[in-house]
Amino acid sequence: MRERLRVVAPYVVVLVAAGVFYVIATRFDYTPHPARLGPDIWPRAILVLIAGVCVFRILTALRAPRDEGPGGGVLQDVLGNAPPVRDAQPEPDERFPGLLALGIAITIAYVWLLGVLGFALASALYVGAMIRVGRYRRWRVIVPTALLGSLAFMFVFQKIVYLSLPIGQTPFDTVSLTLMRLMGIR
């Protein structure tokens, strides 16, 4: 039963979401035009299809949880008949959900900090932090990589590509503006 629930859970979530979005789609505010389909028809059709596939999958999974149903034809055929030397690098067994959560949190913080600290400072911190989170421990490599990497990005994108990167808020904008002056970026 537990296995069935585990298999079915993602489809139930998608089915519920499709239902919610369908209701929202029925409430689009527009003036109907005679002899023309409304702007809700296309999304509603898509949502009905999503719901249909989910229901089909839930029913088949409840009957036989390990059976994924019909699969992609050609690749499945080729992989099924592949020669013995078939695996590339084996999938690592160990998982690190903590690292994943930390990586996502740091990335969210980076996007938020870009507007506050400016590109140079925020990127240096982000690059250093992410490399460390990625289980690389040599600080003598991490620190110069973070600093030089951030400056290199700034130089390439601002000086060569003419992209206007965030300079941050006071007092951090002073750092960005000083670096830009030193690099000859106007």
């Binding site: 596939v53 989910c54 089909f56 088949t60 149903g69 019909p70 992609g72 034809g73 050609v74 992989l79």
Partner: peptide
């Protein structure tokens, strides 16, 4: 949806999303 490997149902849901 049909040429790739894996479950057809998952590929369809992915496409519709």
């Amino acid at each position: 949806v049909t040429l790739g490997g894996g479950s057809l149902a998952n590929a369809l849901i992915s496409l519709f999303v």
